[in-house]
Structures are given as structure tokens and as C-alpha cells.
Simulated assay, not measured.
Amino acid sequence: MTKLPKKRVILVTGPARSGKSEWAESLALQSGKSVIYVATAEKDPDDAEWMERISQHAQRRPSVWQTWEVPVNLAATIREAKSSNCLLVDSLGTWVANLLEYEQAQWEKILKELLEIVENCDGDVIFVAEETGWGVVPAYPAGRLFRDRLGTLVRQLGAIANPTYLVTAGHVLNLSQLGRPLNNK
């Protein structure tokens, strides 16, 4: 395995159940840093299936990894990380869903703050993000808002991250090597 540089922002994206989280976890292990798993999901003891999904993710991770539950304040969490840390943020789709009720102006302010902090952070940050725009346009406003916000976030993070990976059907593609970025201005 190749040694990673001192500081990296990595984006791992793809469809559901494709292997995104497993790939991101392997990258975090390669970092050689103290890994902090940043869980954006909120636990719901009344939803047994959701709790089982959370449990399955937790069982895969090394016991020495810390887990921080951060459903909303992602920018502050990244800002507070040390250069000796590798943050694994799983997932951006859940984080966006947690903020879906915010008005557009407030969302844009949160997004701008997050992107500025990511560009200037000291430690490694690995983001896991779902690709939601490969299907039909959702028939309901909340679905369209979610898809648009997540799509915008993933594209803007993709302009910062290096490398960016696409994981689909259990295969990993390094988009930073295979593709070229669009002008994101």
C-alpha cells in the first residue's frame, strides 16, 4: 500500500451498497493517523432496521477508532481536528438530510463555511457521499431539494479533494487519475 501525504482531503462517492464505506475505511487505515469516525446518522432506538445498519458499520471498524456522532455541526468538528487525526465522515447524504429543513440562505452559509474549513484543515478528512442524481428527478419537492443540495456539495468537495474515488458494483475508480475536473466557478 502506498503511503499517504501528511494532509489529504479524499472524497469517496457512489451508489448505495457499492462498497463506499469499506473503501473509505481502508483509506483511513492507510493514513497511519488516529482515526475518528464521524457518524452523521442519528440513532433511533424505535427503528430496529436503522439500528442494525449502524451496528454493522460499527462492527467493521477497529476498536481503537473513536466515533463522534455529528448530525449537524460538521464544519466545527473538522475545524477542531488535529493534524494527527484522520476524520472519516460517513455520510454526506445523511448530513444533508439532517439539514434539509434549513432555509436556502442558511444552507448556503453552512455549505460555504464547510468548504472553507475543508480547504484549510490540518488533518486528513475522508468523506463518503452518495450519488443520488443518476435516477429520475424526484416527484416531490423535498426529494429534489435533497438531490440538488447533495449534488452541489459533492461537486464542490470534488473540486477540493484529491483524490476523488467512485465506488460502484464493488469496484473502485480513481476519478482524479481517470478524469479531469470541470471548471467549478
Rank of each mutant, 00 (worst) to 15 (best):
G143P: 11
E130S: 14
E113H: 06
Y37I: 10
N120I: 04
G179K: 09
I36S: 12
R60L: 13
H171I: 07
P71A: 08
R79Y: 09
P71L: 12
W50T: 01
V9T: 15
A39F: 10
K33A: 02
G170E: 10
L166P: 06
A48T: 12
I54N: 02
D46I: 00
P138W: 05
V96G: 04
Q104C: 00
Q156W: 05
W134R: 14
S21D: 09
Q106Y: 11
K82W: 03
L175R: 13
L166N: 09
M51V: 01
L182C: 06
G151T: 05
P15V: 12
H171Q: 15
T132A: 14
A97D: 09
R53C: 07
V12T: 08
R61P: 03
A81I: 04
K43N: 12
I126P: 00
N120T: 14
N85V: 03
G133Y: 09
A81D: 03
N183A: 12
R61A: 10
T2N: 15
P163V: 04
S26Y: 04
L178F: 03
S176H: 14
R60G: 08
I78D: 04
A58M: 09
A16G: 07
Y140S: 03
V128R: 09
S31N: 05
G93K: 08
L92W: 05
E52Q: 14
E80I: 02
V96Y: 01
A129R: 04
R180G: 14
H171G: 00
E42P: 00
A24K: 11
P71K: 11
I36P: 04
K3P: 04
V96S: 02
V118N: 05
A105M: 06
W95A: 10
A39N: 11
N98A: 08
Y37N: 09
R155I: 02
P15G: 15
A129T: 07
T40V: 11
V9P: 03
N98F: 05
K3H: 12
E22D: 07
V118I: 15
W50V: 05
C86V: 11
V118R: 03
L29S: 09
L11G: 05
W134M: 12
P71S: 13
T40L: 08
G143H: 05
G14N: 04
C86M: 09
L178I: 13
G179C: 15
S176A: 14
